[in-house]
Amino acid sequence: MSWVARDIALIAAAFAASVVLGISTNVLRRVPLPMLYKNPEARVLSAVSPAAAITSGEPEVLEYKVAVQTWKASAALFVDARNPPFFEEGHIPRSINLPRDSIVQAGSIAALADKARPLVVYCSGEDCDDSRIVAKGLLAMGYSKVSVYSGGWEEWSASGSPVEK
């Protein structure tokens, strides 16, 4: 067997081993990946309600000025949709952390017990989609006053507004 054929045979063996390892260890995971991929929005919506894609609407989008006024007046609970390490590095004061993949736990968070309470969801900034996804998930879960602060953490922290660590 030439060395190229030997290399290809070894690669095929490594790939076969990877298939076996990948599929078998996935089954053993606490939360296995399903075989069919769903995008984050579909994952969140199907996690909160099977009919969520039909029932949930689009959340209202708040600009910075409105978000600051809302925060100053304590007129809404701010929800940080980023992952915990980023929340711990700094967040809007009095906000709670609810990453998109933990949205099913929203019902067990005391601050979210009242579904009529106004909520403002934010994430990193304009390029991040998690605030919209979490907001849509919350709407699907029955929260009635959910909006998105689109500027997010980048705009808030850059504008010199209060931050909490």
Binding site: A14, F15, S18, G22, I23, L33, P34, M35, L36, Y37
Partner: peptide
């Protein structure tokens, strides 16, 4: 396509590890 993304995410990391060890 959606049907290949998650299988890739399961398999490729092991293939990379075996490549690194190899």
């Amino acid at each position: 396509p959606a049907w290949i993304i998650n299988p890739m995410a399961m398999i490729l990391p092991y293939f990379e590890i075996l490549t690194g060890l190899g």
